[in-house]
Simulated scan of single mutants.
Amino acid sequence: MATAAKRRRYSKYDTIPYDLYDGSAVRQLEQEQEILQPRPLVRPRERTVARPKIRVREAGMVSPFAIVGFAAVAVFAVLLLFSYVELSVISNQVVSLRSDLTTLQTEEAKLRAQYELAYDLDAIEESLTANGAMVKPQNGQIIYVDLSEPDSVTYFDGETPATGLAGALTGLQSIFTQVVEYFS
């Protein structure tokens, strides 16, 4: 191709013999018509548009972990929504129950006052002691329990309790006999 470019002629004056050239810039039509021959018509090359080849990533499969993850997120979102709805319902119930509680407490105070007015304890004590159904206790009938000392157990039958495996077996035997006596 490089040799074809060297042989190419760029001027039409290259085809005219030097002898015929008289030095004027005016064209000599008669001589050129004899020398020049019509060129064959060449179709211009149509350039085809070629798109560049781009490497496209193949469509891969969707990961099952991604599907499970998105499903879990959706389930948790729905559960969160339901929990908010339930929380609002419960808070409304708490407010209504608190208002009911205050009304019930005021009603309780009124009823206690009415109950205390219904019974006169002095009149009841006087009526029971007058007919002899109830007597005030004497000093000898009052017993005080002293709880200042630590607790202790005293066996009155004189036997010492069995310890260890023998004590466990006697305990189980007594439980078994009590159960049999209860059901019979």
Rank of each mutant, 00 (worst) to 15 (best):
L29Y: 14
T103V: 10
A109C: 01
L81A: 15
I67T: 11
P38A: 09
Q138V: 14
K53Q: 12
E30S: 09
R51W: 08
A74L: 12
Y21I: 14
S24W: 03
V78M: 10
R47V: 14
N131I: 13
M61V: 13
S63M: 09
F82W: 14
L36F: 15
F176D: 00
S99D: 10
L128R: 06
Q178G: 13
G140V: 13
N131Q: 13
E125L: 12
L117W: 03
V179H: 07
L41S: 07
Y18N: 12
A133S: 12
I142C: 04
N92R: 14
P150H: 05
G69V: 01
Q114S: 15
R55W: 09
E108N: 10
L41A: 13
I142D: 00
T177G: 05
Y182H: 11
D122W: 03
V85C: 03
A166C: 02
L111G: 01
Y13R: 11
E159P: 00
S96I: 09
P40C: 05
V94S: 03
Q141W: 06
T102W: 06
D157M: 03
N139I: 15
A66G: 05
T48L: 14
L147Y: 11
R98A: 14
V95L: 10
V145N: 09
N92H: 07
S91G: 06
D22Q: 07
Q93S: 11
L172D: 00
F65I: 05
A72R: 13
A72Y: 08
V42I: 15
V85A: 13
G167L: 02
V62M: 12
Y144W: 10
T106M: 04
V75N: 07
F156D: 00
A77H: 05
S127L: 12
Q114G: 11
G69T: 07
R27N: 10
E125N: 07
Q37E: 04
Q141T: 05
V42F: 09
A162T: 02
V153S: 08
E58Q: 15
T103A: 12
Q28P: 02
Y119D: 01
L80N: 08
Q178K: 15
L104F: 07
F156E: 00
A166F: 03
R57N: 12
A74C: 08
V94I: 15
Q105C: 01
L172G: 01
D100K: 14
A130F: 06
I124E: 01
Q114A: 15
T160W: 03
L104E: 00
P17K: 06
V49F: 13
D100E: 09
Y182D: 00
E159C: 01
D157Y: 03
S152W: 05
T154N: 08
G69S: 11
A133V: 12
Q31Y: 10
K12D: 00
Q33V: 04
V180G: 05
V89H: 11
L128T: 02
V78W: 12
K136H: 10
P40I: 11
G167N: 02
P137E: 03
A66K: 13
V89M: 08
S91H: 08
V49G: 04
V95W: 05
